Computed example of a mutant assay.
Amino acid sequence: MESEESQIILYISTIIIVFIIISIILLFAVFQKRKNKLLLKQKATKKRFEREIIETQIEIREETLRNISWELHDNIGQLLTLAKIQLQNATPENIKDVSQTISKGLNEVRALSKLINPEAIKNIELEEAIQLEIDRFNRLNFIDSSLTIKGKEQQIDKKVSIVIFRILQEFFSNTIKHSKASKLDVVLKYTEKEMIVSAQDNGIGFLASEEKGKGIGLDNISNRAKLIGAEAVFTSEKNKGTTLLIHYKL
Results as ranks from 00 to 15, higher is better:
residue 16 I to N: 03
residue 22 I to K: 03
residue 30 V to L: 09
residue 71 E to H: 03
residue 65 L to Q: 11
residue 139 R to F: 01
residue 4 E to L: 12
residue 151 G to A: 11
residue 11 Y to G: 00
residue 206 F to H: 03
residue 155 Q to M: 05
residue 29 A to D: 07
residue 249 K to D: 06
residue 43 K to W: 02
residue 136 R to H: 12
residue 216 I to Q: 01
residue 100 Q to G: 07
residue 86 Q to K: 02
residue 21 I to Y: 06
residue 132 L to M: 12
residue 169 Q to A: 07
residue 207 L to I: 13
residue 102 I to W: 07
residue 182 S to V: 04
residue 209 S to V: 12
residue 52 E to F: 07
residue 106 L to R: 09
residue 128 E to Y: 05
residue 131 Q to K: 15
residue 199 A to V: 10
residue 106 L to Y: 00
residue 147 L to T: 10
residue 220 N to G: 10
residue 209 S to C: 07
residue 37 K to A: 15
residue 57 Q to G: 06
residue 128 E to G: 05
residue 97 D to P: 11
residue 250 L to E: 05
residue 208 A to P: 12
residue 70 W to P: 00
residue 74 D to A: 09
residue 135 D to F: 02
residue 73 H to C: 08
residue 223 N to F: 05
residue 101 T to S: 08
residue 244 L to T: 13
residue 214 K to Y: 08
residue 117 N to C: 13
residue 9 I to F: 06
residue 141 N to G: 01
residue 221 I to V: 15
residue 82 L to P: 06
residue 134 I to D: 00
residue 236 S to M: 12
residue 147 L to P: 15
residue 4 E to F: 13
residue 52 E to Y: 08
residue 173 S to G: 09
residue 243 T to K: 14
residue 127 E to N: 07
residue 18 V to T: 11
residue 49 F to A: 06
residue 201 D to F: 07
residue 203 G to K: 03
residue 3 S to Q: 10
residue 222 S to V: 11
residue 16 I to Y: 08
residue 35 K to G: 13
residue 80 L to W: 02
residue 151 G to D: 11
residue 152 K to D: 11
residue 49 F to L: 09
residue 51 R to M: 11
residue 218 L to I: 13
residue 242 T to G: 02
residue 144 D to K: 10
residue 194 E to C: 08
residue 82 L to H: 06
residue 53 I to D: 03
residue 239 N to D: 14
residue 250 L to W: 09
residue 14 T to S: 04
residue 133 E to I: 05
residue 71 E to I: 05
residue 143 I to H: 01
residue 141 N to A: 05
residue 249 K to M: 11
residue 208 A to E: 15
residue 229 G to D: 09
residue 220 N to C: 08
residue 190 Y to R: 12
residue 170 E to V: 07
residue 168 L to Q: 10
residue 186 V to G: 05
residue 16 I to K: 03
residue 195 M to N: 02
residue 249 K to L: 12
residue 159 K to C: 01
residue 84 K to G: 05
residue 137 F to R: 04
residue 25 I to N: 14
residue 204 I to D: 02
residue 247 H to Q: 09
residue 20 I to T: 05
residue 15 I to F: 08
residue 234 F to W: 15
residue 56 T to S: 10
residue 168 L to W: 00
residue 125 E to W: 08
residue 131 Q to V: 10
residue 32 Q to H: 00
residue 82 L to Y: 11
residue 150 K to R: 14
residue 32 Q to E: 04
residue 93 E to T: 14
residue 75 N to E: 04
residue 126 L to T: 09
residue 74 D to L: 01
residue 146 S to I: 00
residue 194 E to W: 04
residue 28 F to N: 12
residue 151 G to V: 12
residue 109 V to W: 04
residue 181 A to Y: 09
